[in-house]
Design a protein around this nucleic acid. Structure first.
Lengths: 145, 145
DNA sequence: TTATAATAGTTGCCAAAATCAACTAAATGG
DNA sequence: CCATTTAGTTGATTTTGGCAACTATTATAA
């Protein structure tokens, strides 16, 4: 029980830095961490509106409004007035935005690939299995709570 | 290979939010994430100096100077002039600082405890084992690179 | 030795990131 | 309808962080 908590603390302490998940800039992009999370939320959820992003990314709506403006100004997203709620609009990636997202994902994949490049096939399989186990158990725990 | 990368991406996407590892404030404390990292670096390394923290926490030394002042103003740390380098000083926690650190750790343990409270003993053991496996393999990968 | 470079930390200035409250306009629900 | 809620914007402000110049000390090397 305590052993589990200690292990999780150790895990969090070591895992994040080795994955480079601490910096404020997402990969080499010009986007801050929050801007990137907004961007990828749109990527994973094209057509969503600002209110959706607010609760998904947990960001202030005023701040989000400016982030969305910036993304649009940069030509990475576009808006369409919502047909059934004229206060609102739906957000989509432009072709440039989609290609940027793919670039970022590709770069992230390369970074991850480097980290695990020294592992054998068997070790990679064990890594995938272990991560699967962690995810399932954590998700089960989070839900039951 | 690609499977492993995809799994790691999925892991990062799901694990971090469920562990509340994304916000900028460390737990409920008044400290920002960076301030907290500085604080815990001192906790784990009493007697260290500012230069040590700079490279360990990867923070600008000017900014760090202000963070240290704030910690001291709040009465959580104290400095002692270094005997062998008079430009430098060694940093220690005060009793209040140590007790704050322990409070924060206790609170973090409670949060983690809640997440895994729904798991059986066997599941907790499997979680610990799986995290161990992930850590060892990720560390091995990072080092070999 | 001296003079030169490097290091520890502070300070001032500034830009980016984020919060907060007030606001407009539209939708919703008695 | 009218009151309330909701979507999004805007302005003011604070917090966070980066950068460069500076002082004081230590290390290096001719």
């Amino acid at each position: 029980m305590n052993e589990a908590i200690e292990k999780i603390r150790e895990f969090n302490r070591i895992y994040l830095p080795s994955m480079n998940l601490l910096g404020d800039h997402y990969l080499g992009s010009e986007y801050s961490a929050t801007e990137a999370r907004v961007f990828f939320e749109i990527y994973q959820n094209e057509g969503c509106n600002a209110a959706h992003i607010v609760q998904k990314v947990y960001v202030d709506k005023g701040y989000l409004s400016r982030i969305i403006n910036k993304h649009e100004r940069l030509g990475h997203i576009k808006r369409k007035h919502s047909t059934d709620d004229s206060r609102s609009y739906n957000i989509f990636l432009t072709d440039e935005g989609r290609s940027l997202a793919e670039d970022l994902i590709r770069k992230s994949n390369e970074d991850i690939g480097k980290i695990i490049s020294g592992l054998s096939v068997d070790e990679k399989n064990r890594l995938v299995d272990a991560m699967d186990t962690v995810l399932k158990l954590i998700e089960k725990g989070s839900k039951s709570e």
